[in-house]
Design a protein around this nucleic acid. Sequence first.
DNA 1: GTCTATACACCGATAGAC
DNA 2: GTCTATCGGTGTATAGAC
Lengths: 186, 186
Amino acid sequence: MATRKVNEDQLMRGLTQVFRTFGLEGASLTKLTEATGLQRASLYHRFPGGKEEMVVAVLQSTLALIQEQILDPLNGPGSPRQRLEKMSRAVAQFYANGEKACLFDYFSIAPDSHPIREHVNKAMRYWLECLTKVACEAGIKKSDARRRAEDVTAAIQGSLVMARAMNDRRPFRRMVKELPDRLLGD
Amino acid sequence: MATRKVNEDQLMRGLTQVFRTFGLEGASLTKLTEATGLQRASLYHRFPGGKEEMVVAVLQSTLALIQEQILDPLNGPGSPRQRLEKMSRAVAQFYANGEKACLFDYFSIAPDSHPIREHVNKAMRYWLECLTKVACEAGIKKSDARRRAEDVTAAIQGSLVMARAMNDRRPFRRMVKELPDRLLGD
DNA sequence: GTCTATACACCGATAGAC
DNA sequence: GTCTATCGGTGTATAGAC
């Protein structure tokens, strides 16, 4: 393959930034070309499936980041609480303290028929499973663990919506700070 | 004025349904004409400001419904807990147990410059004030009341995102059921 | 692999008949 | 007040040169 003007990493970062700012329908090819530094035809060379393929690629690369930065620490060393504190810091960073949106939110605003919906569905269920698992390891019984995992997830997603809607990131910062206590009790 | 093919109520219902399904950018004039039974030009006769005016009108009429169905009961008769139980039922109905989205979420996915952002901002702050007020009336001190109001609001918004993303409305139904306890403590 | 140029559908918006 | 017809612009997508 010939030399690439923009490498994979830069490319995905540019695309992701646009989708995370303007949403699924708001992310136009024009905006995507501006953010990546590649022209339309070049984007189609990288993603023959067009915008729909870009959407899937953006979600996949974002899921890889979430896995690495947020979920992997849950299986790392330390007590459940220590691992959750690591996750808490990673969540704060990943969402830039509430400034950056969640693609689970943006990409779920699509017709049921849209292929991305299935990816989002599985990804969020997996996130919940990881949280449930660490709560179980802390000695919380399964059904309570699941309930608390849902509470924590809703608190994050909801406070992200609030941050955007009210232009106030304080609730998000608080939810994240309280994340370990919310999952394990205090 | 001549006879209207579609009355105000039917019109707003149709428009709202489209925006609440497809979001701000996804709601095209074509979809809006199909949902309302009015042609493009007729919609522009009703809303000379075009789509942007429709967006504002949809939000305003939705806020009126929220006021009437959800927030007014908070100032009605009964104990704070009784009023919150009324609100809880109204919230469940308004969001169709998690099937219908929240415009605070959808309409906040817009550039900061978009006029609708300011309306959403004020509306959500008002919602929070109403919740804070009833918590105060139940004897909870101001700062705790505010915090609990934020928790409840995030739980609702977050579980709506979860309902859409995972196609599972159980977390939403639970959050709504627990709403009074979450605001007042149990 | 990237580019310019272009095809064609759909977007929001308007003119003018009825 | 509603309609059909149409405008200019932008959307996604592609052809073909380099």
